[in-house]
């Protein structure tokens, strides 16, 4: 299994490197986006105010987590999951289904883009800056909590995205749903408590950006109770299982675009 993924990734990196312009574009857009986000944060905080009980550097940790999610999106989610619709449209999903390999695994991990790397590094740096400016020293328990929360957040994002992409089996034309997802995800750049109460509920249960960025950041700072971590773990794993079942169910309706 690992061998297959290794081969997948080697070839897709080779394929990506055919287009060298992307490196420059990716790095400039990363710097631009982070600068823009920090600038917006700065606008919020310029009068010494606080955003939903979070100070500037704690918010920076949230931006860091968000940037890590961006890295995941750029390197794995976007290259793979945006292809599902194309596979269905062109009928090349046939080839995927005929391989003696789990089709969800193939569709989710077939490609990797090296251009997520700068975002990953930037995310880690932001988190460290935020932590050190707040003089937070993370203990062992926090480390375990934080890693669990971040992993759950990755699984959660993946599952939501995969479930949405799966709907294209029925509605081939809804590729834009990915754009809706990405644009709503932007809300995760800021702490959950900054939003009005009604939106907080939506952002926790309907579109769970709470578990995507706020809870992992709280885990790092040490303000998150263990029940939050547990909740995000349960939430993400159940969504992951749902994504698997949903894909299996959807395949029964696949009609294979014919010539």
């Amino acid at each position: 299994m690992l061998n297959i993924i290794y081969t997948f990734w080697i070839t897709s990196i080779a394929s990506e490197l055919e287009y060298r312009l992307n490196v420059i574009v990716e790095i400039i857009s990363l710097i631009g986006n982070i600068a823009g986000t920090i600038f917006t944060l700065f606008l919020f905080y310029q009068q010494g105010s606080n955003v939903g009980g979070w100070d500037f550097y704690s918010s920076l940790i949230i931006v860091g987590i968000y940037t890590l999610l961006e890295a995941l999106t750029i390197s794995i989610l976007h290259p793979n999951l945006s292809q599902i619709v194309k596979h269905i449209q062109d009928g090349t999903l046939d080839y995927v289904l005929l391989k003696p390999i789990n089709s969800q695994l193939w569709l989710s991990l077939r490609k990797i883009s090296p251009w997520g790397m700068p975002s990953f590094i930037a995310g880690v740096i932001l988190i460290f800056v935020g932590l050190s400016k707040n003089n937070i020293i993370i203990g062992n328990l926090e480390i375990i909590y934080a890693i669990t929360a971040i992993c759950s957040s990755f699984i959660l994002l993946y599952s939501i995205w995969f479930i949405l992409a799966t709907t294209s089996i029925w509605f081939v034309k809804v590729w834009n749903i990915n754009e809706v997802l990405r644009s709503t995800l932007v809300a995760g750049r800021y702490p959950l408590t900054a939003y009005p109460p009604s939106l907080r509920t939506i952002f926790t249960f309907v579109f769970p950006i709470a578990f995507l960025t706020t809870v992992p950041a709280q885990a790092l700072i040490g303000t998150s109770g263990h029940q939050n971590i547990l909740l995000s773990l349960v939430f993400s794993i159940s969504l992951f299982i749902i994504s698997i079942l949903f894909w299996k169910y959807a395949l029964r309706f696949y009609t294979s675009a014919s010539s």
């Binding site: 290794y6 081969t7 070839t11 394929s15």
Partner: peptide, 9 residues
Amino acid sequence: DSIKVNAAI
């Protein structure tokens, strides 16, 4: 390269 991928699969 595609052939290698298939070989792995």
